[in-house]
C-alpha cells in the first residue's frame, strides 16, 4: 500500500524450539520415571493378571454368591446389590449418621480457627519479621501436619474411647496445621504496599496484620476455611472407620458383619453427602467472592 511495505524483509533462520541438551535431559527423565513405575508395580503385585483373578471375588461381593458347605447345605451370601433400602432399619439411621459426620467436620474446622489464625500470623513473612518465631510456627505446623488425622483419631480413641468426640479433636488438631499453612501462604501473597504504608505510619507488626493484611486476605481466608470444611467432612467419614463416630463407623460395622447391602447403601449416602457438601461449599465460596 505505502512505501513501507515495499522493502523486502531479510529472511532469518527460525530458532529451534528444542535444544539437543534439552532433548537428552527429557529422555533421561522419561526412562527414569518408567523404571521407577515398573519397580513399584513389581513390589505391589500390580498386574492385569491379578485384576482378572480378583474379578470373581469382586462379582461375588457386588451381587452375592451361593456357598455350598461340606455338609451339603447351600447358603446364600447377599452381595452389595440390591441395596438395603429399609427405612427405619437402614436409611433413617444412615441419615442421622451422615448428620453426625457433618457435625464432626464442622466442629473440627471451627474449633481450629483461633489456633490456625495464630500460627498463620506468626508463620507469614508479611505479619512476622521475627525469624525465630517464624521458624517455630512453621516447625510446629510441619510436625502437626505430618501426623494424619486417622492417627490422631486412633490416639484419642485410645485415650477417651470410641465416639464422635475423639474425631472432632483429631480433625481440629490436624486442621490447625493445614489451614494455618494455607492461611499463612495467602498472607504471604498479599500486596505489601498497604503494609509498608502502615509501617511508615508507625504501626506495629500486630497492627499492620489487623489493619492491612487481614482485611486484604479475608475473602481468601474464608474461601480456604470453606474448602477445609469440605475436606474435613470427607476426612470424618474415614475417621469413622477407625471408630471415631459418624457414617464411617457404621460402614465399617456393616462390612465386618458381612451386611454388604447395608454397607453399600451407606456408601451411596456418603457419595450424595460429599457431593452436596462440595456444591454447597463451592456456592458459598462464590458468594464470598473468592475462587
Amino acid at each position: 500500500m505505502t512505501g513501507l511495505t515495499t522493502a523486502p524483509r531479510p529472511r532469518l533462520d527460525i530458532p529451534p524450539r528444542y535444544r539437543p541438551a534439552g532433548i537428552a535431559t527429557g529422555a533421561v527423565v522419561a526412562i527414569a520415571l518408567i523404571l521407577v513405575h515398573w519397580y513399584a508395580a513389581v513390589q505391589t503385585n500390580t498386574s492385569p493378571k491379578e485384576l482378572l483373578e480378583g474379578w470373581r471375588g469382586l462379582w461375588n461381593f457386588l451381587f452375592g454368591v451361593d456357598r455350598t458347605y461340606p455338609n451339603g447345605k447351600t447358603i446364600h451370601q447377599d452381595g452389595a446389590f440390591p441395596l438395603d433400602l429399609r427405612w427405619s432399619e437402614t436409611i433413617r439411621p444412615g441419615l442421622e449418621y451422615c448428620l453426625l459426620t457433618i457435625w464432626i467436620g464442622l466442629l473440627g474446622t471451627t474449633l481450629s480457627i483461633p489456633a490456625a489464625l495464630f500460627f498463620a500470623v506468626i508463620s507469614s513473612r508479611t505479619t512476622n519479621r521475627f525469624v525465630p518465631l517464624w521458624f517455630l510456627g512453621r516447625g510446629v505446623m510441619s510436625v502437626l501436619r505430618a501426623v494424619p488425622e486417622t492417627v490422631y483419631a486412633l490416639m484419642f480413641i485410645a485415650a477417651v474411647g470410641f465416639g464422635a468426640f475423639p474425631g472432632v479433636i483429631a480433625l481440629a488438631i490436624h486442621n490447625v496445621a493445614v489451614m494455618g499453612k494455607l492461611w499463612s501462604e495467602a498472607m504471604d501473597e498479599v500486596d505489601q504496599g498497604p503494609v509498608e504504608a502502615l509501617r511508615v505510619a508507625g504501626a506495629s507488626p500486630v497492627q499492620s496484620a489487623a489493619h492491612a493484611v487481614l482485611p486484604a486476605v479475608m475473602p481468601s481466608l474464608l474461601g480456604l476455611l470453606l474448602y477445609r470444611f469440605d475436606t474435613n467432612v470427607r476426612s470424618s467419614v474415614i475417621l469413622g472407620t477407625v471408630g471415631a463416630g459418624g457414617i464411617g463407623f457404621f460402614i465399617k460395622t456393616e462390612v465386618d458383619s458381612f451386611h454388604f447391602d447395608t454397607m453399600m447403601t451407606y456408601v451411596c449416602m456418603v457419595i450424595v453427602l460429599i457431593i452436596v457438601i462440595d456444591l454447597f461449599s463451592a456456592w458459598l465460596r462464590k458468594k464470598v467472592g473468592t475462587v
Binding site: D191, G193, P194, E196, A197, V200, A201, P215, M218
Partner: peptide
C-alpha cells in the same frame, strides 16, 4: 517528628 509518605500505587486498603 513524624515523616509520612504517599506512594504512586497509593496503598490504601481497598475493602476498608
Amino acid at each position: 517528628p513524624t515523616v509520612a509518605m504517599v506512594f504512586q500505587k497509593i496503598h490504601l486498603v481497598p475493602r476498608r
